[in-house]
Amino acid sequence: MRQGAMKPYYLFSPWTRIFHWVMVICVFILFLTGLYIGNPFFLGTQGMEPTFAVNNVLSMETIRYIHFIAGYVLVISFIPRIYGFIINPGDRLLPKPWSKLYWTGMIDTQMHYMLLRGKHRPYLRNSLARSGYLAVYLMFFIEAVTGFAMYYMIEPNRFLAKIFGPFNNWLINEYMVHMIHHFVAWFIILFVIVHVYMAIRADLTEKGGEISAMFSGVKYMEEEPDDLGDITDTKKTQAK
Rank of each mutant, 00 (worst) to 15 (best):
Gln3Phe: 14
Ala5Phe: 09
Ala5Tyr: 09
Tyr9Trp: 15
Tyr9Pro: 12
Pro14His: 10
Arg17Lys: 04
Ile18Trp: 08
Ile18Val: 13
His20Trp: 00
Val22Met: 12
Val22Asn: 00
Ile25His: 01
Phe28Tyr: 10
Phe28Ile: 15
Thr33Pro: 01
Gly34Ser: 07
Leu35Ser: 02
Ile37Thr: 10
Gly38Trp: 06
Asn39Tyr: 03
Pro40Asp: 01
Pro40Leu: 01
Pro40Ile: 02
Phe42Met: 03
Leu43Phe: 10
Thr45Pro: 02
Gln46Glu: 03
Pro50Gln: 06
Thr51Phe: 11
Thr51His: 03
Thr51Ala: 13
Ala53Gly: 08
Val54Asp: 01
Asn55Arg: 08
Asn55Ser: 15
Glu61Gln: 12
Glu61Cys: 00
Thr62Ala: 03
Ile63Pro: 05
Ile63Asp: 00
Ile63Thr: 00
Arg64Asp: 01
Tyr65Pro: 00
Tyr65Thr: 13
Ala70Pro: 00
Ala70Cys: 05
Gly71Phe: 14
Tyr72Arg: 01
Val73Arg: 06
Val75Leu: 15
Ser77Leu: 11
Phe78Asn: 08
Pro80Met: 00
Arg81Asp: 10
Tyr83His: 04
Arg92Met: 11
Leu94Arg: 05
Lys96Tyr: 00
Lys96Asp: 08
Trp98His: 10
Leu101Lys: 11
Leu101Ile: 10
Tyr102Phe: 15
Thr104His: 09
Gly105Tyr: 08
Met106Arg: 13
Ile107Cys: 06
Asp108Lys: 14
Thr109Ser: 11
Met111Cys: 09
Met114Val: 02
Met114Pro: 06
His120Ile: 02
Tyr123Pro: 10
Leu124Arg: 09
Leu124Thr: 02
Ala129Thr: 14
Ser131Asn: 07
Leu134Gln: 01
Leu134Ser: 07
Tyr137Gly: 11
Tyr137Met: 13
Phe140Arg: 05
Ile142Ser: 04
Ala144Trp: 11
Ala144Phe: 15
Val145Ile: 15
Val145Tyr: 07
Tyr152Pro: 03
Met153Lys: 01
Met153Arg: 08
Glu155His: 11
Glu155Cys: 04
Asn157Val: 10
Phe159Ala: 15
Leu160Met: 14
Leu160Asp: 04
Lys162Trp: 14
Lys162Ser: 07
Ile163Pro: 05
Phe164Lys: 00
Gly165Leu: 09
Gly165Met: 06
Gly165Thr: 03
Pro166Ala: 14
Asn169Trp: 00
Leu171Lys: 04
Glu174Asn: 07
Tyr175Asp: 14
Met176Lys: 12
Val177Asp: 07
His178Trp: 15
Met179Ala: 14
Met179Arg: 14
His182Ser: 12
Phe183Cys: 09
Ala185Trp: 01
Ala185Gln: 06
Phe187Lys: 06
Ile189Gly: 02
Ile193Asn: 10
Val196Arg: 04
Val196Lys: 03
Ala199Met: 12
Ala202Met: 07
Asp203Trp: 11
Leu204Phe: 10
Leu204His: 04
Glu206Leu: 08
Gly208Gln: 08
Gly209Val: 07
Ile211His: 08
Ser212Lys: 15
Ala213Glu: 02
Ala213Val: 10
Ala213Gln: 13
Phe215Glu: 14
Phe215Ala: 13
Phe215Val: 15
Ser216His: 13
Val218Met: 13
Tyr220Phe: 15
Met221Ala: 10
Met221Gln: 14
Pro225Arg: 09
Leu228Asn: 11
Asp230Cys: 00
Ile231Ser: 06
Thr232Ile: 05
Asp233Ala: 03
Thr234Lys: 10
Thr234Asn: 06
Thr234Val: 05
Lys236Trp: 04
Gln238Arg: 09
Gln238Cys: 04
Lys240Arg: 08
Lys240Val: 09
Lys240Met: 04
